[in-house]
């Protein structure tokens, strides 16, 4: 359940590359157990921010706390408390399902017995029983994505970052994937989703919209739609991400 206890706190975050300001004074909080949508047009600065939050890159200035760890000072410790999944390259295609799970469990320092138990539970929960020894490359895309997500939360991180997790997936699998996200969030893991597909945004508890390095809107999808008097987050997005243009229905 969503609480008001922040697991990510970003204060005055600025990231510069030379004279280019990729993140221009970002301020936001993400609460524990929340599904937080991070939207923005191409090049708005989403990827930069995500890198900082996941400890891959240091902020130029500002304070970023992720799962109680200062991202500016101790990025390595962040990595232990987060899970990460992106659309591509999450699983090794030439390893089997079980081998992939074992590998990630090992990377996060889980004990052998623990991995074995979790693997069985995970396969059971995904109804993947028959796929244990199947190579990832032989799995349909939708199943791979679900597995990649399950692996990303295998070590019970405090936060899981999903980078466009359901691109190109069929509508049924996509919904099953979101059910997994709901379940994960209900279990107390915060879910941070970046996407530029707006229908994905409607599933989130709260969304932020970035434009030109700044966060220009942050609220629940319902509140945003109400505020802008439109019927979808997509229309909200078009109104604020590219001012002066209208989405023609």
């Amino acid at each position: 359940m969503t609480s008001r206890e922040p697991v990510i706190t970003v204060q005055n975050l600025v990231k510069r590359f030379g004279s280019f300001v990729a993140n221009d004074n970002l301020n936001f909080e993400v609460y524990a157990g929340e599904i937080f949508g991070f939207l923005g047009a191409n090049g708005a600065g989403k990827t930069t921010a995500l890198r900082i939050l996941s400890g891959l890159s240091a902020p130029t200035s500002g304070k970023v706390m992720v799962a109680g760890v200062d991202a500016g000072r101790n990025p390595e410790r962040i990595k232990r408390n987060i899970g990460y999944m992106c659309q591509r390259f999450s699983l090794y295609e030439d390893l089997t399902v079980t081998e992939n799970i074992t590998l990630y469990g090992g990377i996060y320092g889980m004990k052998r017995n623990e991995i074995r138990g979790k693997t069985a539970a995970l396969l059971e929960r995904l109804q993947f029983g028959a796929y244990g020894n199947t190579l990832i490359s032989a799995l349909p895309l939708g199943l791979r994505q679900k597995l990649a997500f399950a692996v990303a939360v295998l070590h019970q991180p405090k936060i899981v970052f999903l980078d466009e997790p359901t691109g190109g997936v069929d509508p049924i699998t996509r919904r099953q994937f979101w059910e997994m996200i709901y379940e994960t969030a209900a279990g107390g893991i915060t879910v941070f989703v970046t996407t530029h597909y707006m229908d994905e945004a409607e599933y989130c508890d709260r969304v932020s919209i970035m434009s030109e390095g700044k966060i220009v809107a942050l609220d629940t999808p319902a509140a945003l739609k109400k505020q802008y008097g439109v019927s979808s987050v997509e229309e909200v997005f078009v109104k604020i991400a590219r001012p002066g243009q209208q989405l023609i229905p």
Binding site: A41, N42, G168, H196, E234, V238, A241, Q245, L247, I248
Partner: peptide, 11 residues
């Protein structure tokens, strides 16, 4: 329209 943001898609 794959990999293009919502505004460009609409356009």
């Amino acid at each position: 329209t794959t990999g293009v943001d919502a505004v460009s898609r609409a356009e």
